[in-house]
């Protein structure tokens, strides 16, 4: 099986599609994405990635910033970031 190419590249600039947003759930102490008539929990690195989406920074700039913040190799961060953002773009949670 071959993997589908990512719809998101380092030059892409993304933001949340209308009707979607990242939010901290104080009561349950988890990060969630609010969406039309549902909400889903985002864990691990995902909230750190998603909070940087502002419709101005490119994906590459986000990777750069996280690599510095977490003192982690850029290629490791890049893999996680591209996978997550591609998945959420395919689901129309994010858009360019």
């Amino acid at each position: 099986m071959t993997e589908a190419p990512h719809v998101v590249a380092e030059g892409t600039v993304l933001s949340f599609a209308r009707g979607h947003r990242l939010q901290h759930d104080r009561v349950r102490d988890v990060w969630i994405v609010q969406a039309p008539e549902k909400a889903f929990v985002v864990e691990g690195a995902a909230p750190h990635i998603l909070r940087l989406l502002d419709g101005k920074r490119s994906v590459g700039e986000i990777i750069q910033q996280l690599a510095i913040e977490f003192s982690a190799p850029r290629e490791v961060i890049a893999k996680d970031v591209l996978a997550l953002l591609s998945e959420l773009t395919e689901k129309n949670v994010l858009h360019t």
């Binding site: 939010q23 759930d25 009561v27 969630i32 609010q34």
Partner: peptide, 9 residues
């Protein structure tokens, strides 16, 4: 909201 509701219809 205080109780933990996330969405209001």
């Amino acid at each position: 909201a205080e109780l933990g509701v996330l969405q209001v219809h």
